[in-house]
Write a protein that binds this DNA or RNA. Sequence first.
DNA 1: TGTACATCAGTGAACGCGCGTTCACTGATGTAC
DNA 2: TGTACATCAGTGAACGCGCGTTCACTGATGTAC
Lengths: 200, 200
Amino acid sequence: MRITQKQSDANKTRVIAGASKLFREKGFEGVGVADLMRAAGLTHGGFYNHFASKDGLEAEACRQALATSVDRMSAVAEIEDKTARSAAMAAYRRNYVSKKARDAAAANCPMAAFAGEMPRQSEDVATAYATGLREYLDAFVAASAGAETARASAKRARQKALVEYSMLVGALILARSVAKADPELSDEWASQTPPQRNRC
Amino acid sequence: MRITQKQSDANKTRVIAGASKLFREKGFEGVGVADLMRAAGLTHGGFYNHFASKDGLEAEACRQALATSVDRMSAVAEIEDKTARSAAMAAYRRNYVSKKARDAAAANCPMAAFAGEMPRQSEDVATAYATGLREYLDAFVAASAGAETARASAKRARQKALVEYSMLVGALILARSVAKADPELSDEWASQTPPQRNRC
DNA sequence: TGTACATCAGTGAACGCGCGTTCACTGATGTAC
DNA sequence: TGTACATCAGTGAACGCGCGTTCACTGATGTAC
């Protein structure tokens, strides 16, 4: 039963969107082709009408998930007013490692969700990830720059952002790692990790 | 061909030791029972003489790997002389996110290596991990305490250690995540992440 | 605009491979006497 | 200490399940006239 090309395109879009969330929640290996298609209301057989392989969808989902994060961070970086930008970044950091973000991996930072699996992914997926992460980091640096150290050199500002972002990702991943087995420790990580860490 | 009980024990020990490294390098799902036995010079059939299941070995390997890290960190915490302890911690941090550590996951921090997979592990494995991580963190706090903020309260010292350790883990995981696809960015993370970050 | 036919998105059965697990078997070890 | 037998660590074939992928088929869509 052939369907409209517009319908077909919408189906593909829905599969990618669902995959983007499922992969973040359960990992690439934790979701099967059948699951991915079911999430879009389809059956597994039609998968290869849209994608060359499961790996192809992984790369595409990765690309789109990171692109969304990049856009969001770029939007912050483009805030002209320094005070407003600084406040936006503070809010961003605060949400980043919250309990809410920890418990809803599907809807949050794909960089943190995928990082641990990347060393074992195909070249396509790894490239999509690396490209997105680099762009994201540039935006993160731009959004952070001048927030509190206007006189710092570009290099130092970037280094500082690297450290800051490492901390956020590490805290989120560690909080998730013990969420079930040691909720108390997990909460400590999710809540005590300082939202605005620049109290020097 | 039955063997000495001592031999059998040694075999089991060797399997666990190999598993501890292989899991860190390739992830739990990335290593099969046959691989694990082969690494110890055995064939897969005998696996169930030693372990109830692959999951059982995962838990045991996790337990032992983290225990080793806890011991190492406890040793630092037990250094009496503050200056020497502080220096030992500085060296520890410097090595933690080095290119060397990044490229040899099998021989380095199991907490960082396993963190990303933990949300999807069995209760046994997750418990072994959480127990070890809590002990490790306590040791990390003890080893860091008094290093530079002698007057800080215990709570603040712990919070500071949480942040510090999150940063180390995040940097290591992120550096590994792009090691193949963007070596330049990976090197940036592995080398620029400040070794002794307490420049407040 | 209407008709005839080719196309092709989606379906569900089937294939094949990998991997965790089981099992019959071997023969050296450990033990009972 | 020596002998006979039970035990059991290790072996490799085989099982069974899950999952990525393929394929014949369906029937509505899109197109040529």
